[in-house]
């Protein structure tokens, strides 16, 4: 492969498409998705339930369910100026890639621990399956990571999973996820279903970890506040497509896609006085037979005939801020009119 990527790009997803084969037809869960992840940065994928966020992240570590089929695209991974397509890794390379290069903490993974094994066994097993058999060294690294996630290291290392609260388990998982010093950590809904104070602890821990261990993060969340707090870049996912992509401030203060705008105007804040909120009408489309043209057009206040016929490309209007919409100007005008 004669490929060249800028040195600070650790991951480049290129035109990725995935379907799920079902009795009722093919679910087009990922359609022509492209994005890049830079060294040391955090990218958030946001969008409604069923928009395809988890599917994208599972594809990155090739953990898609059996009925999934990658119908096109590449997932390029770069370390030490060597570039590989994750989709073409052999089984052995793949095992190494997961954990060593790219670790994932799954949605609702607090229940992922084997209930009959103490935490230290789960660390040791993970290390061992990647050829690291020196238990003393594993222990040393594990304890320092447990400390980093602000747990009582000795106690937790020797505990059974059921002795830990949900938030403690989630933090232990984060520590386990970075045991083998991966370059990329994927977090699927890292704070969902946790309490406010536990969420805060997880966010603070993640920030600490990223600062000290220097990895890149892809995280998936329906929670816009989490993206506002943690992400450097944000991608909005709608019906399997990335419809907007940009730096976190651009997305939150100057969104260019009506769907992102709709998400933002439907979250209440604590800061403002009374919020003027508006929900997005309708519901997300059926991904077996998505609407023609722009998939968001049936729910969009700015849609016209063009939108129901032609699918808008994800284009770069203003330096690095991309949106897939025919009528970004209408959105901007309506926002200006309201201020």
């Amino acid at each position: 492969m004669s490929l060249i990527l800028p040195p600070d790009i650790v991951l480049k997803v290129d035109d990725l498409s995935i379907v799920y084969r079902t009795d009722r037809g093919d679910v087009k869960a990922t359609a022509n998705v492209s994005f890049e992840l830079r060294n040391g940065q955090a990218l958030a994928l946001i969008g409604e339930s069923g928009s395809g966020k988890t599917t994208i992240s599972l594809a990155l570590i090739r953990k898609l369910p059996k009925n999934a089929l990658v119908t096109g695209g590449r997932i390029l991974y770069q370390r030490n100026e060597k570039i590989k397509d994750v989709l073409e890794l052999s089984d052995r390379q793949l095992r190494e890639f997961r954990w060593n290069e790219c670790a994932m903490v799954f949605q609702g993974a607090q229940n992922a621990f084997n209930p009959v094994l103490k935490i230290h066994r789960q660390f040791e097993d993970t290390a061992q399956s990647h050829g690291w058999t020196d238990k003393t060294a594993v222990r040393k690294r594990a304890l320092s990571l447990l400390e980093l996630v602000r747990l009582d290291p000795e106690r937790v290392y020797d505990a059974y999973p059921h002795e830990l609260s949900g938030g403690m388990k989630q933090r232990t998982l984060l520590a386990l996820g970075v045991l083998l010093n991966p370059q990329i950590v994927i977090l699927d809904e890292p704070t969902t279903a946790l309490d406010i104070l536990t969420q805060r602890a997880i966010i603070d821990v993640l920030n600490d970890m990223q600062r000290q261990l220097d990895f890149s993060i892809i995280f998936i969340s329906h929670d816009l506040s989490l993206a506002a707090e943690m992400a450097d870049h944000v991608a909005t996912v709608y019906a399997g497509e990335i419809v907007e992509l940009g730096a976190v401030n651009d997305i939150f203060y100057q969104s260019l896609h009506p769907y992102t705008h709709g998400l933002l105007t439907s979250v209440p804040t604590l800061e403002h006085a009374q919020d003027l909120l508006q929900s997005i009408p309708g519901s997300p489309p059926n991904l077996i037979a998505p609407p023609a043209g722009c998939k968001f057009h049936p729910r969009c206040a700015f849609a016209d005939d063009t939108c129901s016929k032609d699918s808008p490309p994800l284009t770069d209007d203003v330096g690095g801020h991309l949106a897939a919409c025919w009528h970004t100007d209408r959105l901007l005008a309506s926002r200006k009119a309201r201020v």
Binding site: R200, A228, E229, L264, E271
Partner: peptide, 13 residues
Amino acid sequence: LLSAIPEPDPEKT
């Protein structure tokens, strides 16, 4: 509680 909650606004949060 109120101090812990992230806000959907990058600068404020």
